[in-house]
Design a protein around this nucleic acid. Structure first.
Lengths: 239, 239
DNA sequence: CGCCTCATTGACCTAGTTCAATTTGGGTGG
DNA sequence: CCACCCAAATTGAACTAGGTCAATGAGGCG
């Protein structure tokens, strides 16, 4: 819910009670989108932004041949299309992978929020820039990392992102994607994803079964994936 | 120079004379970085942002094995690290490919600019979101497009971006990269880039010689690359 | 129980890599 | 103007990561 977002923001910038109240007052009712539905359609003009309260979603683009490229996974606390506020229309779609409970923020409410508290502009801008940073790290994966390293890196990313919103259980977390979904994100076929998962299992780094990632050895996995969490901007900045 | 930036902004949002003057007043002297120099180093804390006035630069990350992944090319009129304003430190480096003339904007000047004219927040935010959109399209390239299509798509992108800042000459433009640079951007080896360039030449789509891209047939090239310029957000939005 | 999606595996194929040699062309010093 | 140099481009031959195709297995659920 919205408290996840507030907690995420507060990890970086202290918010006054008044500011928190202001945020809460701007959210409207939650809407549930069923698994598989397209919540934001590429090219559409958009007048509100969706905060993901519960579920798993992804950004993707569809090609002419029907294939799709997933560009990011979104979990609870992610403002999935906040960038539609400055962009006004999105260049990609946002799809619910599981059922997703979403909270709507009208763009004009975001505008008034920023007018009343100009700090919010930088806080919200910051959140969208983290997505861009994630995109860049994925470019490194798709351009320079092969097979097992690429999958391992994604598992590390989703682990850290899930952990900050309290969605991990030790070294385990729920990641309800199919192997085909992983392939669409990482630029592999589902067959190859399957083989790579076996390799990670055999190396005792991580397993992926029943929609759940189990990291056997976090340090070894991060070393293997050359994972550095800096790009997720999870530590507090000294403003 | 800064007029390129102003022209770019005005393509989307009208600026008053006062606003233009305000922008000009915030820029400081231009600095020239020689080809090959790193203008912004990954991880550094940053207190100003650089506008590229002349030259070619790129964003990239360096891996442990010394390889680098280029994530975007930057041309005149691009605010290369505006996102360091909300992020405070960058997750990647910015390198001059040719000699680059840069204009510095102190972050506290950007803050005061926004305070005086809150519209600037959205204008500047918008500019950084276009970079994110470009990242996403590159993810599609690296994840889903092969060989010639990937190179062709980049040539289309750089053509459109160069054209809006007046850097094209008909269907030709200066793109001073080596084939190895192209490889580092597209996830190929320089050998394979060379072969793909030959293919594009033989198909009469485009040539790349003497640091210059010559598009033989724009329509055919865009069709071949499945290029849709929407992601560059070059048309005016009706605010 | 039966169906349907997803996971798994094998056999074969291909886009892109690797390694290494050769060529080209612009720049520079004499 | 020429000789030389060096980075970049080009090409061939052999190799491999990942793709394709196709069959089989396994779990969840109406």
């Amino acid at each position: 819910m919205i408290e996840t977002l507030i907690a995420k923001i507060q990890q970086r910038s202290a918010l006054s009670e008044e500011e928190k109240e202001l945020l809460r007052s701007r959210m409207t009712e939650a809407v549930v989108y069923p698994a598989g539905s397209v919540m934001v359609t590429e090219g559409e003009r958009i007048r509100y932004s969706l905060l993901l309260a519960e579920g798993l979603a992804c950004r993707s683009k569809y090609m002419v041949d029907g294939a799709r490229q997933i560009m990011e996974f979104e979990i609870a606390g992610d403002f999935v299309d906040l960038h539609s506020y400055p962009l006004e229309r999105l260049d990609h779609s946002i799809t619910a992978i599981t059922d997703c409970r979403m909270i709507k923020f009208q763009h004009h409410d975001i505008s008034s929020l920023i007018e009343q508290h100009p700090r919010f502009a930088r806080i919200l801008w910051f959140m969208t820039m983290v997505d861009a940073s994630i995109h860049r790290e994925w470019l490194v994966s798709l351009g320079s990392r092969s097979g097992a390293h690429r999958v391992a890196h994604l598992f590390c990313e989703m682990f850290h992102r899930s952990r900050v919103v309290g969605l991990t259980d030790g070294l385990t977390y729920h990641f309800p994607v199919t192997q085909a979904d992983l392939g669409e994100a990482l630029g592999f076929t589902s067959v190859h994803v399957n083989r790579v998962l076996r390799e990670l299992r055999e190396r005792n780094l991580a397993t992926f079964q029943a929609k759940r990632v189990r990291i056997q050895n976090l340090e070894a996995l991060e070393e293997f994936a050359q994972f550095d969490p800096g790009y997720l901007y999870l530590q507090r900045n000294e403003h």
